[in-house]
């Protein structure tokens, strides 16, 4: 569990970092909090020959609110998001304690987790549920990628070679929007076996909008469009809960591992979604 040899650089500006990446092509990898990449290096599962540590780039450490939501720099730690106010973005706050352990969150970054695109990770699920916007920086400038297009398979994102995920904007929602984050893990802090994120708007007790996401049950987090349709316009009564849970269980394509079969993961998503909807119901 020792990494193969690699070169290491720690630029102080985004441009400098992008130049390193351009110079070394797919031999180079950006290093943020290192909570996924460093274990992969030690297991020799990742073999970049150059690590570009983006931890000293001040612009990537900013976290501020603008008219569209919370704009969070790629190297803002998960722990900082957990501790600081993200008013209007309750789902983000609710999800944070499920990410690893406090020690991991103290180093792990928002951008690192999203770019890593672990199918069982919480932040990609939050990003998808809230329709977050990813900002990719390249030598040619910036481009915005909606969350729905960002995740391209397990541990794969849609960044081009030479691009760095520089910021993520999580839209804020009105105070009336209710949200819930539910995750089932074997132990506190473990990767999810299955999880569900939900934001729901109501008018007169009926659902006017629902954004429901399942994660850890497939290649990437997935919007539960069937379950969303099942609750649209309805009171969240027993029948609606059953319909949405059944729709969710039917529409996901879970994987199989030693912690659960596809069948079990369908059951988990059904149970978690039901509880999430019970929680947000007015």
């Amino acid at each position: 569990m020792k990494p193969p040899p690699f070169a290491y650089c720690r630029p102080h500006s985004l441009d400098e970092a992008l130049e390193f990446l351009a110079e070394h092509g797919d031999e180079a990898r950006p290093l943020a909090g290192g909570q996924s990449l460093v274990p992969m290096l030690n297991h020799r599962l990742a073999r970049p020959t150059v690590l570009v540590d983006i931890g000293a780039i001040g612009d990537l450490q900013r976290m501020d609110r603008n008219e569209s939501g919370w704009r969070i720099g790629a190297t803002v730690t998960q722990r900082r998001v957990e501790r600081e106010s993200t008013e209007g973005c309750d789902l983000l706050r609710l999800a944070m304690p499920f990410i690893g352990h406090r020690q991991i969150r103290a180093r792990g970054t928002v951008g690192g987790s999203i770019a890593h695109a672990d199918p069982a990770a919480e932040l990609p699920a939050v990003a998808l549920t809230l329709d977050a916007t990813m900002v990719a920086a390249g030598l040619d400038g910036q481009r915005e990628i909606p969350a729905a297009e960002f995740f391209a398979g397990p541990y794969m994102n849609s960044l081009e070679e030479g691009e760095i995920l520089s910021h993520v904007t999580f839209p804020t929602v009105p105070p009336t929007t209710r949200c819930s984050f539910r995750e089932f893990a074997r132990r506190k802090g473990d990767f999810a076996v299955a999880g569900v994120a939900a934001t729901v708007d109501f008018e007169d007790g009926s659902v006017t909008a629902a954004s429901l996401t399942a994660f850890a049950v497939g290649s990437n987090p997935v919007r539960l469009t069937g379950a969303e349709a099942a609750v649209a316009g309805r009171h969240l009564d027993e029948a609606a809960l059953i319909d949405s849970a059944e729709a969710a269980a039917a529409e996901i394509e879970p994987w199989d591992d030693i912690h659960g079969s596809p069948q079990y993961r369908r059951q988990l998503v059904a149970a978690l979604l039901r509880r999430a909807l019970q929680e947000v119901a007015p």
Binding site: R186, R187, K188, G189, D190, F191, I258, H259
Partner: peptide, 26 residues
């Protein structure tokens, strides 16, 4: 929690991150 699994080829399936030693929380 703890389970050391092998597949039909005799390949170990349980890495340390999947080997669930109970912690103080559990």
């Amino acid at each position: 929690y703890e389970d050391l699994c092998f597949n039909d080829l005799g390949q170990p399936q349980t890495a340390f991150m999947d080997y669930l030693v109970p912690s103080a929380v559990e």
